[in-house]
Every structure is written in C-alpha cells, then in structure tokens.
Amino acid sequence: MTDPLVIFDLLLGLSIVALALAVLSVRDLFAAIVLFVIFGLLSALAWVRLSAPDVALAEAAIGTGVTGALLLKTLHHLRYVTGTLDRPEAMNLTPVTPVPMPVLWVNAAFCGLIALGLAVAFLEAPKVGPGFDALVAEAMPASGVDHPVTAVLLNFRAYDTLMEVVVLLAAVIAVWQVERGLSEAPAPHLGEVWQGFARLALPAIVVVGTYLLWVGAEAPGGAFQGGAVLASVGLLLLLSRFYVPQPAHRGIARLAFVLGTGVFSAVALLVSGGGRVAFEYPLEHAKTLILLIEGLVTISIAVTLAALFHGREPVALGEEERRNDT
C-alpha cells in the first residue's frame, strides 16, 4: 500500500539533503546563498506536505525570504568593502586558511556518527506520540480564534510569542549598536525597470500582507507571515530609494520597533486582576484583543525586519559618531 506520493517525498528529501551539502561545498558565496534560498523553499514545500502550511509560509517569508535578502545585502557590503565587487572570482572574503583534509574527515565522521545516533533514536521513538492535539481541541472554544496555530501563538503560549518579539527587539537594538556611521556600501541600485516594478508591486504586497494577517484568525497566516510580507515592502522601498532612512526618523523608528512588544505586554498585564493572571484574556474580548495585538505586532515585525535589512542606525555624519569611530 505504498502511497505514490512517497516517491515524491523521497525525491524531495534527497534534494533537500543534496542542497544542504551544496550550500556548504560550492565555492562561490553568492551561489551558496542562492542555493540556500532554494533549499529553504524546498523545505517549505516539504512542510506543506507535512500539513504545516503556517510553518511553510513563515519559513518561505522569513526564514528564506528575509534571511536571503539579509545575506545578499551582507555579501554585497563585504564585496564593496574589500573592493571585490567587480571581481566575482574573489570567492572568499574573510581570510581563510584551508582546513587540512584529515581534520575535515574526522569532522565528517564525527558528525556522521551523531547523525546516526540521532537517526536511531528518532526511528525507535513512538510513531504517533502523545501530543497536545486533545488539549488544544478542548481549549479552542475558549481561545477567541478559530485557527489552532494562532490560538497557540497568541493565547495558549502567548508568553513564548511575546518573548519572541522581544528577541526581535533585542536584535534590532544590537544591530543599531554594532553598526555605526562607518563607510557603508551604497545600496545595490535597482534599475529603471525595477523601480517601475517596485511601484506596481508595492500596493499588491501590502494587500497580501494585510490579508495574511487578517486570515490568520481562521486559516494559515498571521502576524509573522504578514509582517514578513509587509517587510518586503520596506525592503523594496529601501532598495528602490523611495525611502532613505533619515536621522530625524529615528524616534519614530524606535517607536515602531517597540510598538508590538509594548502593546503585547501592556495588554497581557492589563487583562490580569480580579482573579485572572497575566495573558488571561476575558473570553468576550479575546478575539478583539488578539487581533489588536496581532495587528500591532505585524507592524513592529515589518518595520523591524526592514530595519535589520538596512542595518546601521541612521546617524547624521559629523555627529558624535565620527569622533567615536576614529
């Protein structure tokens, strides 16, 4: 009773592993990043096959899309700084001493053994383990939303999700702290055609992002996927130079980064009291509160991801920065 799809699964699994190997072994870094993006998209496909469309969406939008953009931007910066922008044959950017072959073999054998051990442990684990299915199904009516993954993210395990937004906030603070007014690569310029494309695409992307956010209450989608799609608006704006970050905009940017975390944690605290603990939304307002949180978190995620892409804090040259840098 072999499912014909098993062939598909096998091929997909094998290509994913092959791509993972290729990402690490191909010489050109640009090619490695492109292969990584393909790897991410195929993994997302596999997750759709495993009935995890939310995860697949998040992976495609954030894990692959935004990450790929971040990686390419960094590669561009490194090539600019090292003066190898026009010489794609200069593959390795950081000083590299080749690893001796025996070390590579020992390493491969070591990791192979680990993989073997993990595979054995995985195969002997119960096929259908106990899980949260029953608990979630039982609690769904009291969650305020109809989509289980959204219920888990925004209600049952809302604390995790708050902390995840905190991680994003920490990241953007750390990035602004690390990158200062140093010589920066000019953003890779988009041509005329692209500018036109950007102008046409922006409204469509906004619509898709908002739709993903809205539909998250009932169907796959939600704040993170919607946020990532909206972040691509930011990326396009930055790339096409429709928007150039200004020092004067730092205040509003900070506000946008903090918005999601702030409202999320404020709601979590304010709903408590009268016998309720933090994060315990009153049932009659649960849907409204969750939508409010999701909406503002989406904005924060979008702005934060775009800021992570842009990198450095927009500091006016000649400000205190220059003194500190020298």
Binding site: A58, E59, I62, V152, L153, D160, E164, I301
Partner: peptide, 13 residues
Amino acid sequence: DPVPHALVITGIV
C-alpha cells in the same frame, strides 16, 4: 498537532 508548528514559527523568527 498545532503546538510544534507554533514552536517552529517562533524558532524561525
């Protein structure tokens, strides 16, 4: 089971 899905989304971010 939706819980691990939520965990992976968190992990991705």
